[in-house]
Write a protein that binds this DNA or RNA. Structure first.
Length: 550
RNA sequence: GCCCCCGUAGCACAAUGGAUAGUGCGCCGGACUUCUAAGCCGUUGAUGUAGGUUCGAUUCCUACCGGAGGCACCA
């Protein structure tokens, strides 16, 4: 419908003598203004030297003729907007279409045939997954689904640091506590905190940890490597449990132990080609010549840094996961580093560099101060989920439903805003189960399904409908457009906000209209069903669970 | 010092350059003989400052103020 309107406007403008004017067709903020609006008259008025209101009036009357029965009215408003109110049959048609499409309602094709490689979550083995990783995991999974929904194939991977100083600290910590066989991820996390403190407080410990770090890279100390393998296994198993809870499933896991070797080699090759240079015994990329930071890729001790490993990873992914676009999600604090890696990649392998995009996300900040695993005041992902689940079980006896509500609440908190922004997280008040929240969406869906389950008659979109479409219907129409916009702009929050508005409209409809046994019962049931389909499809994209009852 | 991000009501967040700047929490006030009150209806309240571009700026540009992050051997 939007395209039809757009074309009609373009033609009308050409007739008026303004063929290359760019204009918008958008949803008015207020439904009272209609279903679509355009600024075409405002945009064209200047080049035509016309009064925008007059021009709008002229265009409107022309468009009224062209669009005919599809529109209820075409009116001008304000400084020269043209508002389109769609006719009743258009909405009836959409309600029918939703019933036919079912799970496919809202799916797009803009990215058909594209392969996306998306990397997210990326917790480091030997540390516990904290709420920061939760943010990356939730945003990454939902962004993946948003892109899949527009027709692309998405291959998900997570990349973890299983070598490097933090591992040396954890292993040193385990050894110093005399632990040969760690029991769980928590024990390893504590050992890391212990080793990390020792590293800063004791020269001897620092020396030992540096030595361990090298030994892990070399990998010849059998006993050490056994502890390392065991530790990595325990950590990654804990991650997998969380991923199952969060409904995210990776196709690949990459580890720094695999990227370190290739990374070193690639950077050394680059050094020979003059892309990198030596400085104070280290191999660096001189980013300053292009306004970036100058960063070390290979340390003076010969170990690769994060940057070199990232280069190795880029090539490894290219080999195993052929793709058209590669997204790497990390916290925003890495933007400076990533810009340097990308610049280096663009010199080493222009095609790989060009299609690699860093998608930064904000931090989850605590109102109670900074989180630091060294300080031991991190909130782990598992703890947070457990806390919210406890809160949710006050109203739900069924543990599965309490868990679905908890996951929904946490995900909503993360997905309601633009991914780049920080979330100020107050464990006491941030996780609302009322108002704008995950449970709000879930509850609206549960009530709608409940109505449908109790219905004695069939949902029939072809039965008589009231002359004026419900606001709910007028919002339902927008779903595919919202989903497409979210994919185009990497903006999952657009879907969250839309679903919130839609749920609110359903709640109002539910409160005002008698559905079962009321007027237009068959048609209202069809609208309720269309709402259920839309909410289900939307929540599926967000990866928010849909409880059976609440 | 340099680079990047951010500044919207008491608080947390929205708003492809458009109309009366939306929503939730909180505050205050309503409605249950009716399909689930985690809900509905109403009320209160905001674009850091100063310029610029534009028919039109929360949005783009400049400066300033304030906050967060980054700036060579952690990731």
């Amino acid at each position: 419908m939007e395209d039809t309107i757009r074309e009609a406007i373009a033609k009308a403008l050409t007739q008026a003598g303004a063929s290359d004017v760019s204009f918008a067709v958008e949803w008015p903020a207020d439904l009272a203004h209609g279903d679509y609006a355009t600024n075409a008259a405002l945009a064209a008025a200047k080049s035509l030297g016309r009064n925008p209101k007059e021009l709008a009036e002229e265009l409107a009357s022309h468009l009224r003729d062209v669009l005919g029965e599809a529109v209820e009215s075409v009116k001008t408003a304000g400084p020269g907007f043209i508002n389109f109110t769609l006719a009743r049959p258009v909405f009836t048609g959409i309600v029918k279409e939703i019933a036919v499409l079912g799970a496919d309602w809202g799916r797009g094709s803009a990215k058909e045939g594209k392969r996306y490689s998306i990397e997210y979550s990326c917790p480091n083995p030997f540390k516990e997954m904290h709420i920061g990783h939760l943010m990356s995991t939730v945003i990454g999974e939902t962004l993946s689904r948003v892109i899949e929904n527009s027709g692309a194939t998405v291959i998900r991977d997570s990349y973890g640091g299983d070598v490097g100083p933090h591992v040396a600290k954890a292993l040193w910590g385990l050894r110093s506590k005399g632990i040969v066989e760690p029991n769980d991820a928590k024990e390893i996390g504590e050992a890391y905190a212990h080793g990390s403190r020792a590293y800063e407080e004791s020269e001897d410990a620092k020396k030992e940890i540096d030595e361990l770090n090298r030994a892990i890279y070399i990998g010849e100390d059998g006993e050490l490597m056994n502890l390392w393998r065991r530790g990595r296994e325990i950590s990654t198993e804990a991650f997998r449990n969380l991923y199952a809870l969060l409904d995210t499933h990776f196709d690949y896991f990459f580890f720094e132990s695999e990227t370190a070797g290739p990374g070193l080699e690639l950077v050394r090759d680059g050094l020979a080609k003059g892309i990198f240079k030596e400085s104070e015994g280290a191999v660096i990329y001189d980013g300053e010549r292009s306004g970036l930071h100058t960063l070390v890729f290979i340390t003076s001790k010969g170990t690769p840094t994060y940057e070199a490993k990232e280069v190795g990873l880029a090539f490894l992914v290219e080999e195993r996961v052929p793709n058209d676009v590669r997204y790497i999600l990390t916290a925003a604090e890495q933007v400076g580093h990533f810009a340097v890696v990308k610049a280096a990649l663009e010199e080493l392998a222009p095609l790989v560099g060009a299609k690699t995009t860093h998608v930064p996300h904000g931090f989850l900040r605590l109102t109670s101060g900074k989180m630091s695993s060294r300080e031991g005041n991190v909130i782990t992902a598992a703890e947070l989920i457990e806390d919210v689940r406890t809160k949710a079980s006050e109203k739900n006896d069924d543990p599965l439903i309490a868990q679905q509500v908890a996951i929904g609440a946490i995900k909503y908190m993360i997905l309601r805003q633009a991914p780049g922004g920080d979330i100020i997280f107050d464990p006491e008040t941030s996780l609302s189960l009322d108002g704008d929240s995950g449970p709000y969406l879930q509850y609206a869906l549960v009530r709608a399904r409940s109505v449908l389950a109790q219905a004695q008659v069939e949902a029939k979109p072809e039965e008589a409908a009231p002359a004026t479409p419900y606001k709910l219907e007028r919002l339902l129409v927008r779903f595919p457009g919202v989903a497409a916009e979210a994919a185009r702009e990497n903006a999952p929050q657009k879907i969250t906000q839309y679903l919130t508005q839609l749920a609110g409209e359903w709640n109002s409809f539910y409160a005002q209209e008698r559905i079962l046994g009321g007027d237009y019962e068959n048609y209202k049931l069809a609208v309720a069903k269309a709402f259920v389909t839309t909410m289900e499809n939307g929540l599926r994209i967000l990866a928010i669970p849909t409880p059976e009852r609440m």
